[in-house]
């Protein structure tokens, strides 16, 4: 029902007969509430990273801003994360078709590519250190570590959920139908983290820092 219309209901009118009679019975299921919870979690995560982007932009408007040294590795990591999402979606489609082999392939490659992404991010940190750029007073470096670190923590959280689902797939030998829901929730979360990363990467870390272009258009820089 439309939320706005519901908010103008006259609540003091009582129901005659059986409440909700004739309407389709919605069962409360773990998947539907899981999906709702993940959507709310997206809201929380979006606020978190939005505030970080705003802080980043605010800091960039200072005169002493030094941009981040460009790293090719991040492009590679981005590709890894995209393929991870694709693989998870493969697993979802496999689940819908009841083909457990597709689920297994998708889950496995999705997990591996996610780990590759994490390793790549770690390597990017090491690169910065080895290039001698690791001065904590450089705000671009500090923000890079903070933002990628928080994003990586979210991925680690996802991998824990992935592990629980994987356990059902491989050890408990569940049927495709039984784990369809969990796989879908995992993939849903994966896509969110991918979108988040694309926004962060695109705005802050790719090429010549696109946020500065936006700030320039707004006349802030």
């Amino acid at each position: 029902m439309n939320l706005l219309r519901e908010l103008t209901d006259k609540p003091w009118i009582a129901t005659e007969g059986i409440p909700g009679a004739g309407q389709e019975q919605k069962m409360l299921s773990a998947v539907s509430s899981g999906r709702a919870a993940i959507k709310w979690l997206f809201g929380v995560g979006s606020v978190l990273f939005f505030l970080l982007i705003v802080s980043y932009g605010e800091r960039m408007t200072y005169e002493d801003w030094r941009p981040l040294p460009e790293s090719k590795l991040l492009w590679f990591n981005t590709i890894a994360l995209i393929s991870s999402s694709v693989a998870m979606q493969w697993a979802v489609i496999g689940g819908r078709r009841d083909e457990i082999d597709d689920v297994k392939i998708g889950m496995l490659s999705g997990g591996i590519t996610a780990v590759v992404f994490l390793a790549g991010q770690l390597l990017a940190w090491r690169q910065l250190v080895q290039m001698g750029y690791f001065e904590t007073t450089n705000p671009a470096i500090a923000f890079f570590i903070l933002i990628t670190g928080l994003h990586a923590l979210h991925i680690v959280g996802g991998l824990i959920a992935w592990g629980r689902t994987a356990q059902k797939v491989w050890w408990r030998g569940c049927e495709a139908g039984q784990i369809r829901g969990s796989v879908e929730l995992c993939a849903f979360y994966w896509h969110f983290l991918l979108v988040l990363w694309l926004v962060l990467f695109g705005l802050l870390f790719a090429g010549n820092n696109n946020l500065s272009i936006i700030l320039a258009i707004c006349g802030l820089r």
Binding site: V44, L48, L51, S55, T136, P139, A142, L146, L150
Partner: peptide, 25 residues
Amino acid sequence: ALLAFPALFVGAVMMLLDRILGTSF
């Protein structure tokens, strides 16, 4: 609370980094 606490979280983490790693947020 869900939408507001992230701001405090960000602030707290940034201040922790300032205090421990010597960043200058």
